[in-house]
Design a protein around this nucleic acid. Structure first.
Lengths: 241, 241
DNA sequence: TAGTGGTCTAGACCACATA
DNA sequence: ATGTGGTCTAGACCACTAG
């Protein structure tokens, strides 16, 4: 445990060991991991050191602590995670769950820019999903989602239609791909012909373009998503601190 | 220290005591606060308890720890804080500091909606600052900033012109108002006549509208800011986790 | 009642900055 | 050499959950 190869505090080495097990799927989303005292014995360190490692992992939303019950692997299929990666909120009233309509799900060769962002070779197999989100019956978001073909083998429109809930919940449950964090670039653009047709907005109406890259364990990019948001009665909410 | 009045862990009570002193201005931005052992003695608790209180305050960016040197009151006039509240970045290349041009600085009665958001009475004195930000000489942001009149007595266009650096640095140094966190609502809008004139964009060009409310200690709102961003060569950057 | 995470303590030692 | 924050330990006790 005191390996000189990695010069970092003990609790970070423990953290790394736990992360490795999470990545390997030893403990699945929603399941409890062993207790702090159990882990401390396994790793041959004190409970406080394990605690500090778990503290950081909980802070990064990889684990969730529940007093009296245990520590659990975070899951996208939980109420508390529903709006973490969807920042669109109504100007008035409470946030509501969107209904999703899958417009398309195709396998094709990754265009060069997508390949670059997903760290694939151009021409590698990729999946393109197009979908529309409606809030209270109002078409609001048009998403173009690019995924690497290999880990998402078996993803079809039927599979997407059959699943209800956040997409990342499906990904973690069916494909073992857990989204950890995202980077987004936002800008204002004019609605193009496709947006006019599928969102029912006026030609050239200003739309919010949200360009996202999502990462899984080890900061590996596994999704590129381009969303067009109608922001007439909803807005993108952000907190700075 | 074990007062039964507030039922919360000891370290949170300590945290609250430290926050009170910060709010009272006992320790100013950029200054060091007493050492952990010193504070532990003052408050009659162990060093570990003070440590946990400071941990949380550092996590909220109110304090900054520097190993070997001490713990310091966070300041907006520091390199590391420069881009925390300005999320606009160039599509290519490194972030650059904007140049600010003050277009207007007027004192007037707060309109009803501004008063509501600043928790003032309609008609109370307020300050309206209009400014333009340019990045590498390119006009990019048009800000309308509303502040409560009382704490910002003495704020003038001349004062603003004389100061170089982030606005929040001026606010904390000259007016003792420290911005802690912001809430932002983003949407896409068409450029109006004023934006066309002052930003040099085409009529109805899509712009990113950023509507911000800023809070100081005790979650008291002290700024309402409406920014129009040109997002042709820059974008609003956000991280989700 | 037993097991879990949450708090608090006391003390030892390490890493870093400064004089 | 001294003072600061950073790490690690061991143990006691509290708060919450569930059988």
């Amino acid at each position: 445990m005191n390996g000189p190869a990695t010069f970092s505090p003990l609790y970070r080495q423990i953290k790394s060991l736990i992360t490795d097990r999470l990545q390997a799927g030893e403990w699945k989303p929603g399941e409890a991991i062993p207790s702090e005292t159990d882990l401390a014995q396994r790793f041959g360190v004190s409970q406080g050191t394990v605690r500090k490692a778990i503290d950081e992992l909980a802070g990064e939303n990889l684990l969730v602590r529940r007093q009296g019950k245990g520590t659990f692997v975070a899951s996208h299929r939980e109420a508390r995670a529903q709006f973490r990666f969807l920042r669109l909120r109504p100007d008035e009233g409470e946030a509501v769950q969107p209904e999703s309509t899958v417009l398309e799900c195709r396998r094709l060769r990754a265009p060069i820019e997508i390949a670059r962002r997903l760290e694939m070779r151009p021409g590698d197999s990729a999946v393109l999903v197009q979908r529309r989100l409606s809030f209270s019956g109002e078409a609001t978001v048009l998403d173009s989602i690019w995924l690497p073909g290999a880990p998402f083998k078996g993803l079809t429109a039927e599979r997407l239609d059959a699943y209800h809930g956040p997409l990342y919940g499906l990904f973690e449950a069916e494909f073992g791909v857990r989204m950890i964090r995202c980077e987004e670039r936002l800008r204002a653009v004019a609605a193009d012909a496709q947006a006019v047709e599928l969102l029912g907005v006026a030609p050239a109406e200003p739309l919010l373009l949200v360009d996202r890259t999502s990462y899984t364990y080890g900061d590996r990019p596994v999704e590129v998503r381009r969303g067009l948001y109608v922001t007439r009665r909803m807005h993108y909410h952000n907190e700075l601190s």
